[in-house]
Each structure stands twice: as C-alpha cells, then as structure tokens.
C-alpha cells in the first residue's frame, strides 16, 4: 500500500489511517444505535453480532490483538449464539429463529 503512494508517503498513510479509523468508529456508533433502536429482536441480535465484529476490528487497529480475538470469539460469536438460543426459547413458533433449518428441511 505504502509503496503505491509515492508523494509524501507518511502524510498519505496518516490520512488513510485516520479515514479508516473514523469510518470504523462511525460504523460502530451507527450499529450500536441500530441495535438498541431495532424493534425486531432477531434483527437486533444480528446487529449486535455485527457490532461485536466491528469492535474486534477496532481492537485490532489499536494493536490489542488479544482483546480483538476475545471480542470476536466471545463477544460476537458465543454471545450472539447465546442470544439467538434465548430468542428461540422466547418464541419457539417464530419463523426465522428456531424453525428456519427445520422449515427448509421439511418443505
């Protein structure tokens, strides 16, 4: 990347970094807002998982690889699965949660 941009290397890289970080930060805020404001619980959980993945990317950008790994694996992955399992318990008959694999199988 850096070799492609010849004039004023460091300045360009700094601007690109700033843009990327700003984009990630805004995306995180937007995802958080959408998660909280979402009326549909299933959508809220999916957004929460996306939020966790973006947060993991931000941790990685901050050179905190340990936290990024933990966030992706536990924060986004396992917590998302637990929330989906809880949602399936709340609405066992709701399409789109528990019944999805079964429905696709039966039809």
């Amino acid at each position: 990347m850096e070799t492609l941009i010849t004039p004023g290397n460091d300045a360009w890289v700094a601007v690109l970094n700033l843009l990327l970080d700003g984009l990630l930060g805004l995306l995180l805020l937007w995802l958080a807002w959408r998660t909280l404001a979402s009326a549909d619980l299933f959508r809220a959980i999916v957004l929460f998982i996306a939020f966790g993945l973006v947060l993991a990317m931000i941790w990685a950008r901050l050179d905190a690889a340990d936290i990024a790994l933990a966030e992706a694996a536990i924060g986004a992955g396992v917590t998302g699965a637990l929330l989906l399992a809880a949602l399936a318990r709340l609405h066992p008959d709701r399409p789109g949660t528990q019944a999805r694999p079964r429905g696709s199988d039966a039809s």
């Binding site: 690889a65 340990d66 990024a68 790994l69 694996a73 536990i74 396992v78």
Partner: peptide
C-alpha cells in the same frame, strides 16, 4: 503471542 485459554475455549465451545 496473542491467544490463550479464553479464545481457545470460545472456539472449542463454538
């Protein structure tokens, strides 16, 4: 290096 019990446990649990 980055890694450890919690990350490994999460992957294994998944």
């Amino acid at each position: 290096a980055p890694g450890g019990a919690f990350q490994a446990g999460a992957v294994l649990g998944a």
